[in-house]
Amino acid sequence: MPEELIIRHCSPTLAGIKTGNLFSCTFESKEELFGDIRAINRKLVPKGIRMIPLRLSKGRALIYLYRPTKLFNDLASAAAAAILEDLGYSQIGSTACIAQLSRRLQASAGFPHEIGLFLGYPPEDVCGFIENKAACAKCTGCWKVYGDEEQAQKTFEKYKKCTLIYCSQWAEGKSIERLTVAD
């Protein structure tokens, strides 16, 4: 798995300004994929970041790169916990919730709508997406916004700028370890 793929899709998480990112990659064998994930985790876990596969299907992997501390705080909010409880999540703790999310992803070709909570999206936007069946958003960027449009636009711009800077720094030879902000 090329580190450039991680930089391109996960820069805001590496920078510490986002809870998590998802990206898809191809793989030849599960052994090779898991070896690549272990190698990345050896570099990033000391900085407070973990990478795990959420779904494997026909030579493609859906990879989740996240900050466990941020995720625990996000899911502990009353609004996020209420959404997860309504959807049948039994234990509102990051590890248990990730396992349940992975099972839900494996059981469906699509994405469970609560996945936004695992990416750091505002609970009001995740709830709005679910209640409105993805329609009637105030605006769309990294996610569909149903709440604070102004704040969301600022966040979208911050993520975009971060990704541009990280891609540029990567192209200039900075390593993924140097680009990753420690918790």
Rank of each mutant, 00 (worst) to 15 (best):
L71W: 06
G147L: 04
I83V: 12
R42A: 11
G116K: 00
V45N: 12
K160A: 15
F111Y: 11
A171I: 10
I7L: 06
Y166H: 11
L33R: 03
S11A: 15
C136G: 09
A39Q: 13
L119M: 13
I176L: 15
A152N: 06
L62N: 02
R38V: 10
A152P: 06
Q106R: 11
G147C: 07
S57H: 14
Q153S: 12
C97V: 05
L117S: 04
E157W: 10
D36H: 13
E85S: 12
R103M: 13
T140Q: 09
P112L: 05
L75S: 07
P122K: 02
F72V: 08
L105W: 02
P112D: 05
E150L: 10
F156Q: 06
E4S: 14
A109G: 11
V181G: 03
T180L: 04
I6E: 09
E85A: 13
R42E: 15
T163Q: 08
S90F: 10
G141W: 03
L164R: 14
G120Q: 01
L75M: 09
Y159K: 07
E150Q: 12
K174R: 15
K70W: 13
Y89H: 01
S108G: 08
G128N: 08
T163M: 12
Q151H: 12
W170M: 07
S94I: 06
N73D: 14
F129T: 05
Y66C: 03
H113Q: 12
M51A: 05
R67L: 01
G116W: 00
D183R: 00
K133V: 12
A99Y: 04
